[in-house]
Computed example of a mutant assay.
Amino acid sequence: MAYSIQEQHSRDLDWYFIDGNKKPIHVATGGGKLPKIIEENDEKNENLHAQILQLPIQYEIEINPILNEFVNFENEELRELYLTDFNEMAGRGFISLDKSNLGNFEDGIYHIVAYPKGSIISKGIELNIDEFIANDLIIDTQKNSSLDLLKLFENDK
């Protein structure tokens, strides 16, 4: 099966890849277009996501210090609610990204929301996911499991 266009538009889907430094990345689509490999493998992506949600939260987290340049919060309560899932992913060892331009389905620009403390990340970095797709850095959900991801986490302790 595959994610339909309607499903991609209407859901905030999660998917994962490894960056050039072998860091695990979590992406929340915010109703944006998925990379083709993820779009075509909805069941495998959902299974991977379920496995990742079972990983323990074991890392201290940091929030992007310029997050307010990407997301406007009416109050602190809404900010904390927004951060919940991103903090949990960062606590599992992922650099966690959100879509920067909501409402623009084709736009592949994302910003960092939260990340494990001590990660080497440039402050204010914006990542274009299309660049990672071109470099074959997407996690192949057919070949990787949460156990493979755990091996990556061991290097960060």
Rank of each mutant, 00 (worst) to 15 (best):
Leu34Lys: 09
Ser119Thr: 05
Phe105Ser: 01
Gly31Leu: 08
Asn155His: 14
Ile125Ser: 13
Gly103Phe: 02
Gln8Thr: 02
Thr84Ile: 04
Ala50Asp: 13
Thr84Leu: 11
Asn155Leu: 13
Asp140Thr: 01
Asn155Gln: 13
Gln8Ala: 10
Phe73Cys: 03
Ser122Lys: 15
Lys117Ser: 14
Lys117Asn: 14
Glu7Phe: 07
Lys157Trp: 10
Met1Ile: 01
Lys23Pro: 00
Glu76Pro: 00
Ala50Met: 09
Leu48Ser: 09
Gln142Gly: 04
Thr84Trp: 05
Ile95Val: 14
Gln58Lys: 14
Ala2Lys: 15
Ile133Lys: 10
Lys123Ser: 11
Phe132Cys: 03
Ile57Ala: 06
Gly93Gln: 08
Asp12Cys: 09
Phe153Pro: 06
Ile38Gln: 05
Pro24Gln: 06
Gly103Met: 03
Glu60Leu: 08
Asn155Lys: 15
Gln51Thr: 02
Val71Tyr: 15
Ile37Asp: 14
Gly103Val: 01
Gly31Cys: 09
Tyr115Met: 10
Lys157His: 12
His26Asn: 07
His9Glu: 13
Leu55Thr: 04
Phe17Pro: 04
Pro56Asn: 12
Ser100Ala: 12
Lys157Gly: 06
Ile5Thr: 13
Glu76Val: 01
Glu88Trp: 05
Leu83Pro: 08
Gly91Ser: 08
Gly30Leu: 03
Asn45Gln: 12
Phe86Val: 01
Ile63His: 10
Glu7Ala: 08
Tyr59Ile: 00
Ile112Tyr: 09
Glu69Ala: 09
Glu106Ile: 00
Glu131Ala: 05
Asp136Ile: 00
Asp156Cys: 00
Lys44His: 04
Ala90Met: 02
Asn72Lys: 14
Asp12Val: 00
Gly20Cys: 05
Pro56Arg: 10
Asp19Cys: 06
Met89Asn: 06
Lys143Ser: 13
Asn47Lys: 15
Ala114Asn: 11
Leu53Ser: 02
Glu131Trp: 07
